[in-house]
Nucleic acid binder design. Sequence first.
DNA 1: CTATGAAGTAGACATCGTCCACATACGCTA
DNA 2: TAGCGTATGTGGACGATGTCTACTTCATAG
Lengths: 213, 213
Amino acid sequence: MKKTVSIEKRKTFRHGDLRNALVTAGLDMARAGGPNAVILREATRQAGVSPNAAYRHFANQAALLDAVRSACISRVAAAIEEEMSKPRVARDPQMFARKSLRAVGMGYLGFAMREPGMFRTAFSVPPPVYEQNSANTASMGLNPFQLLSLALDRMLESGLLSRKDRKDAEYLAWSTVHGLALLVLEGPLHKMPREIVLTLGERLVVMVERGIS
Amino acid sequence: MKKTVSIEKRKTFRHGDLRNALVTAGLDMARAGGPNAVILREATRQAGVSPNAAYRHFANQAALLDAVRSACISRVAAAIEEEMSKPRVARDPQMFARKSLRAVGMGYLGFAMREPGMFRTAFSVPPPVYEQNSANTASMGLNPFQLLSLALDRMLESGLLSRKDRKDAEYLAWSTVHGLALLVLEGPLHKMPREIVLTLGERLVVMVERGIS
DNA sequence: CTATGAAGTAGACATCGTCCACATACGCTA
DNA sequence: TAGCGTATGTGGACGATGTCTACTTCATAG
């Protein structure tokens, strides 16, 4: 239980990179136990620093949590990007668009199953991203929402989606996989086997593809 | 801020109905602030009782939260039932089935918008309801999941759904509205206006109807 | 009428977030 | 190069929460 990671009893008075150390520690806790497990004091402990030192870098524990969440969102974006980059060749534009949408959905779901704690942390309470984007990106420079938009744009361009149906389609598609993920991670479907979840995910994507237009 | 509800400084040593009083207090807190706001000590305070008294009725605060969640789920079920009972006449079976599904979805979403705290409490962490039902019902004696199943059965019976597509369809449909609700309540769509949410909800139901078969 | 056990009380402890006052030493300026 | 201002950490304290171990009260079964 007592993990006490990396407490080298630093000799310099200054830590040198405390802010980062705290976020990293917070990320570990988030990974292991979700947003509620991100304890400010524990983070300072792991960084080998007194509790109050944290307040030189974060206004309060909510601010720390916020930084951790931001990191988590980036991970989600990275997972989606990786899934999107899998299909090497993409000759048929429509097939390409379809595969893109599928990749976004399954990348999202896959990450949720692989890293429940980080996923739950990424999408909890206070980041009003509606009509507003601030970082949280991965290598491609896009956040999860923007990656989804990209996939939907490909569907529009390839003629799979009318301009009218394209509007706000991200919210429809997003709701779908997000719902499944949360029902499984912190909802009544807690005990559903992961493989079944992914199978349902595939059906979900098909459903979106068919029902959205 | 200080609500201090109903502290009549009871004269009898026994409270008489403490368990219920605690759940009620917990429900109030859940309504106001979601699952994290359900504080054991505060509940005992509102019941006019010492903190430890709670331990005569609940093993720990998690157990109290569990009771509160159960109550919240019943409320959800009630909301859905009400929405389902609205369409008086139902001549065409297919139309009836469609309306039923719509009612479940919109009842669910509507409750989420009306009672965010209770909704968030209802579907958080630990009630493994997958392949298992224990109470949490409303007047009709069905929990939200069973009400959804009922609607889908109507679609099957009226020929709107093949037997194959009917299988596990509840998870697909459920994920959809649940996702939208949570993205809005405790996710990035926090600031999305309620009316827009409901409009998206309608589109979502249509999407399910079309894409599910 | 009594004793037994369920329901409540009292006090204590560890942990958390956070505030205030104080200490340290990095790096710029004179 | 000496000195100093301030960013960064430390120490101690406070109130709040969950929970543990006694102790008390009293309704009721025998």
